[in-house]
């Protein structure tokens, strides 16, 4: 118990890193997801293909391999040098972006065709229709799935400990081997993750209630 309490400040620094990487990665991932979803829905074939290939590659390979590929693989090329944090954020963002793009696409496609027709008949262009009419409804509708993905992504960041990013998990390992109090340390780390995810869920429920489609 003492070991856990003593380790707490050190672990909290790890939590800050975890939250920082998660925050930046999920925002970038969301932007990627939005762009890729729109690429899938254009009538321009090459854009559709690129989007499809990207999603399939991410879905068809383990995240750990993606992390190794970007941090070790890309870094082994002479003209690329990424530090751990950047490589970590990129990997997590690209990974989340692929899954989010599928959710966003499904959300967009779930909006009734009549909405587009009403908007176009008023004189809105296709782009304006997407921006003012379709996306606001689609994003509201996909909020629960978005929360789901955010929780998965937050947990995925723990894998970044393998490339030496000093996140919550990596700091847990350091403490566990330094103190020989594995049980107490990993219990503490687990509780911290649990609380953060619980807060995330509450936050999302709040936003969902607030922006519910009436």
């Amino acid at each position: 118990m003492d070991a856990a309490i003593n380790a707490l400040p050190y672990l909290m620094q790890g939590l800050v890193t975890t939250l920082y990487i998660f925050g930046v990665a999920i925002i970038i991932g969301f932007i990627i997801g939005l762009i890729v979803a729109l690429m899938r829905l254009t009538h321009i074939k090459p854009l559709q293909w690129i989007a499809k290939i990207y999603v399939n590659i991410i879905r068809g390979t383990p995240l750990l391999v993606q992390i190794f590929f970007i941090y070790f693989g890309l870094n082994s090329l002479s003209f690329i040098s990424l530090d751990r944090e950047v490589a970590g954020i990129i990997t997590i963002a690209i990974n989340a972006g692929a899954y989010l793009s599928e959710n966003i696409r499904a959300g967009i496609q779930s909006i009734d065709k009549g909405q587009t027709e009403a908007s176009r008949s008023l004189g809105f262009s296709g782009g304006q229709t997407m921006r003012f009419i379709i996306l606001p409804q689609a994003l509201r509708r996909m909020l629960p799935t978005f929360t789901n993905q955010a929780i998965i992504t937050l947990k995925d960041t723990s894998l970044l400990s393998v490339i030496g990013i000093a996140d919550l998990t990596q700091r847990g390992e350091v403490q566990a081997s330094a103190t020989f109090e594995s049980f107490a340390i990993w219990t503490t780390v687990g509780i911290i993750y649990f609380i953060i995810i619980y807060i995330l869920t509450l936050l999302s429920n709040f936003v969902e209630r607030r922006y519910k489609l009436r």
Binding site: D112, G114, Q115, E117, A118, S119, R120, S121, L122, G123, F124, S125, I133, P136, Q137, R140, L213, R214
Partner: peptide
């Protein structure tokens, strides 16, 4: 066409109001 459509109002069987 977007300019032209501004001069033509349309009302649908299913109303198609914007729910948000």
């Amino acid at each position: 066409i977007n300019k032209f459509r501004q001069e033509v109002g349309m009302v649908f069987q299913q109303f198609n109001l914007f729910p948000h």
